[in-house]
Design a protein around this nucleic acid. Sequence first.
DNA 1: CACGGTGCTACTAAAGCGTT
DNA 2: AACGCTTTAGTAGCACCGTG
Length: 696
Amino acid sequence: MSYEGKHTVFRTAVASAPSQPLTTSSKTHATPIAMMWQTVGERWLDSAREASSAKDKIVGWKQRAMVFDTTLRTQAGQQPITIPCPVEAFPDFCLEHDEILVNAFQLTNDTKFLEAYVDGTWELHSCTTSRRLVSTDEPLLYQALPDGIQGSRILDSECPTFDTLWRRQRGKGRLGEAEPMVPLGAPKQWARSSKLSDAEGLANERPQKRLRSGPIIDLTYSTSDDDDDDNMSQPGVDVLRKENTLKGPKVEQDPHTSLLQSFSRNGRGRGRGPSQKGAKSGRRKVSQIDGGKLWPTAYEAKDVIAGFKTMEIQLTERPKPSLEVLFTQTFNRPFIRSTFTRHWSLYQRFSRRHLNTIQQLEHTPVGSENSLWPSFVAVAEAEMDGSGNQYDRDEDEEDEDGNENDEDPSDAKRFCRAGNGDVGHANPSNVAPSSKRIVSDPSSSSSDNDSASESDDAAMVIDARFLCPYCDEIYPTNPSRCLKCLHRTTDSKSQPAPFAALGCRNKYHRITIPATAATEHCERHRFETRLIHKAIQAGWPRKINFEALQHRIVSLLKPTLGPIVDNPCQSSLFLQLVAKARKHGSMHTFGANVPGKSFIGRVLVPEVAIHLIETDLQISWKNAIQTKKESDSYGYLAFPDNGSDNDDDDDETPSIPSISSVPSVPSFQQQPVKRKGLTPPLFMASGMKDDAIEID
DNA sequence: CACGGTGCTACTAAAGCGTT
DNA sequence: AACGCTTTAGTAGCACCGTG
């Protein structure tokens, strides 16, 4: 199963694994340890979260030892056995943590793999592969690969319970006609794709829409608790399970959870659940949690704001990620909905009105008394009580006179004041209507305004007509049709709010609902005002001969790609991928695709792209890689992958690249040779935006 | 003991998805 | 398209903990 000298492994995997993860015909792999299902069900996750939360209060978030049950099904038709499996560094799970598994499957080094089903796809895990468990509700399933990576996978007939388990997970009453065997949680598209040709399967393998996760089967109990199994097959059982899991009595009856109780909340019953008064051993020390970081009160305001901003950006992605996942990823803290919502809401409400204050807080020196988040909360709440709430009322209800808010000088005064960072210290001189100090009339007095406003933004005296109404940055003087179209779309989701402009300099400022609705628009006009100039300076192509490009790519297949296919280790990109997979796990490295397909998308395609750049610009390989990285955004925006030409040509239907459609994890739903054209920047625009080709 | 903060539960509303 | 179910987000109330 070594990578070396096994390039055919990848080719085989590309063709078969994505579309036929379980249905490939084989008669050769049903060895005594032909398959193994190791599951981490939702119940386990609930328990794990609870345990981790409690443990976090005691000794810290990381480096804790936990035990969960592992179910092994070593042979079809036989009862599985359940053994305890330690997770030494919860929430990071690593196969090598379990000596039994390591020995059973001879995972003696990281060139041997099990296949793990995670988040809708199969990925390869070596003994050192580490995965974050707590952030996902998906169970973990592993299967052995006795025939190697390229070998066939198990048949449903060889694992009859799998079908049952999968159907339970899908929930009862919604299945309709019998569907082909697909892995747990796999979308229907995948099921259909398993009947298609490889090419078709590749095109369909990834869901286009957000998946709904059905009831999750806790396989840990699949053999010892038939009642639970029955419950699991009923509609709405996930609710029952949640109740059973979360409420005290069930926890106490639950031998599995009781295993975890030593790590759990130590008797600090809260809320309406059963209270366990008297147990004082777990008294928390706020300042000691996680080495002194209690979210959010122990955090710097700038850090919290930065995290929230990151989350806002990520929320524009499709499918829309959950707040819980985003929060966990961003702050690496246990997600407590009520606490999070409290602060998230405050930030959302406040940031829309007082963007400048937010920006100034971001520059607050760390360590100062007022730099912590609670200080921000105090300021924000005071401001919202004093004016923000008033604003909310104005916003939600048209004022009595029917005047628009932006015509209300009192509102403008309040928010100009706040916008200049003088929260709580109003500067009466800064109450002039924003329009008076913005318009490029030299006679308009800006000297009267506050010194704080002499920031980069406020100091500029620019006609508001040349500013973006949403971000107040410079707007292109000759916007493309695409940008105009985006503008119209965004405009329909916004309303005038001149008082919310940066430094009150834009009387045409508008706020969108939601606040992220202008992201695409602003990204686009920034591109048009900056990246195009950069592209011209750097000599990046603005027009592309797609016809010639196709021939060029084909000509590269044999001399350039052939040797790499024969020996992937020739490719530095491949070596980096492998190193990264070993370090972070194949899921993080390869995204939601199987490694074989990722080999095309993340090795062969970038190789071609870099080669083209190298040839076109007459630069070194390393510089070509750098150019590829730098032209990522340009390629994506200039040559949107929607079949239309770039929108420099106004005669064409305007193409509207969707920022949100750029996957955070690259997806390669299209085979490169089928694309209309491939240019270096176009490559990057179509999913090559990855960190796998970084050259240190 | 008061207060601020955190965490839990219950509840509602909205959105997404599958079925008919 | 309508309907029903599920999931997610948001809110309120309460209990508990840590600090002064």
